[in-house]
Simulated assay, not measured.
Amino acid sequence: MQDNNIREKCRELATRLYELDGEVYESVGSSLGRTFTGDREGTIRNLSALMYTKPDGHLLRSEMALISNMARTIKDKEEKSRLMKKYDEIFQEILTLPETFVATDIMDKERVALNHMIKHREKISENDHLVICISRTQGSAGNDIGFGLADKLRINYYDVEIFDQVLRRLEAEKGAVNDAEYFADFNKYEKKHKSDPRGWFREFNRYHGLPKQDAVFFNMSDLICNLASKEDCIIMGRCADAILKNNHIPHISLFITAPFAIRVQHVMDVRKMNMKQAVRFLKKMDSQHRRYYNFYGGAQWGKPDNYDLCINSASYGINETENLILKLLDDQIH
């Protein structure tokens, strides 16, 4: 596509996505409101920019997941089918845009020939919902795999951006807190009671006897348990596997990673970083994930013993990793 053609295509798709959101909201009548709450022109312009400039594909992915999640709750089967067909058409056309969600695939071709499928020995009860909790190292394409898997399974997808929006909407009157903000700033939280005891005490009182970060986590835990007890879904991160295990809610836990050197190259390709920036970014993000999980999950992040399946995504690539997990689920369910 020529540059002008790509821009026009992005605007067309953004317009269709905005209108679909309105149709879904009208059919569902959700108290949460529309996914896109801004004015029409401004929203379409922002969506077009997300598709065209691709600064963070996960933002567009999360917006689309919110729409599809809501559409799947429509009770009228014909209306649900009609709107999901529209969603699928838009989604497939967005995938044809250059590097919309991810710049390059992640695959170590030399290892592909050594792959073998793994059968899982435990079965899921017919009465249980299919809940897949995915932890991942940064740069292993874990979010892309989770999103693609949710689309193939036609189940809901939840990541930190979606959880943040849902919590903000559900608890606006209570003063919702931004989970993404405080997860990214976990270092400050760990040191806060030492550097600012008075500030820590004020927050302790404000959140009903809990520090702010703890209040975020417990609100998130309640939401995760509620979702897992009511619907099939994929949950990215958030210590979801530990939360559901502690609450005795059936689930499948996966850990997706890849060799550090390959993750560095992947981040360089996707985020247009140089090697020094990519290495620093990966170490910082892995460290934040590890401390958050170890602190709240009460287990060791990334330790194989804590997961049902650990996958080296570089051995398969994004699509084949999704297919591997689908094969696993087929063995479990049937």
Rank of each mutant, 00 (worst) to 15 (best):
D3R: 14
D3W: 13
E8V: 12
C10D: 03
R11H: 15
L13P: 01
A14G: 03
T15D: 05
Y18T: 01
L20I: 09
G22E: 10
G22H: 05
V24G: 03
Y25E: 14
E26H: 07
V28F: 09
S31V: 11
L32V: 08
L32C: 03
L32K: 08
G33M: 00
R34P: 08
T35Y: 08
F36P: 05
G38V: 04
I44F: 02
L47W: 07
S48R: 02
S48D: 10
A49N: 11
A49F: 12
L50F: 10
M51T: 05
Y52R: 05
Y52W: 11
T53R: 15
P55S: 06
D56Y: 09
G57A: 07
R61Q: 15
S68Q: 15
R72E: 14
T73P: 08
T73G: 14
T73K: 14
I74D: 01
K75L: 13
D76S: 04
K80A: 08
K86Q: 13
Y87D: 10
D88M: 10
I90W: 07
Q92V: 06
Q92T: 13
E93D: 04
I94G: 03
T96L: 06
T96K: 13
L97V: 05
P98E: 05
E99Y: 13
E99G: 15
A103V: 11
E110S: 12
E110H: 08
V112D: 12
A113M: 11
N115Q: 14
N115D: 13
N127P: 05
I132E: 06
T137A: 09
Q138S: 10
S140T: 03
N143P: 07
N143T: 14
K152Y: 02
R154I: 06
Q165Y: 06
Q165K: 11
R168D: 10
E171M: 13
A172E: 03
V177S: 06
N178D: 15
F183Q: 02
D185H: 13
F186V: 07
N187V: 14
N187F: 14
N187E: 15
N187R: 08
K191Q: 14
H193A: 15
H193T: 15
S195R: 12
S195H: 03
S195M: 13
E203H: 03
F204N: 11
N205T: 10
Y207H: 00
H208W: 02
H208V: 03
Q213C: 00
Q213R: 05
N219D: 06
E231H: 09
E231G: 09
C233N: 00
I235R: 05
I235M: 03
R238F: 01
C239V: 03
A240R: 01
D241V: 01
I249D: 00
I252C: 00
S253H: 09
I256Q: 03
T257W: 01
A258G: 00
V264N: 00
H266V: 06
V267M: 02
M273G: 12
M273D: 13
Q277V: 12
V279C: 07
V279I: 12
R280S: 13
K283H: 11
K284P: 01
K284R: 08
D286C: 04
Q288K: 14
Y292S: 00
Y293R: 01
G298T: 09
G302C: 04
P304E: 08
N306Q: 07
Y307K: 04
I311E: 08
S313E: 10
A314K: 06
E322L: 02
L326I: 09
K327R: 13
L329G: 07
D330K: 09
D331K: 00
D331S: 08
I333K: 10
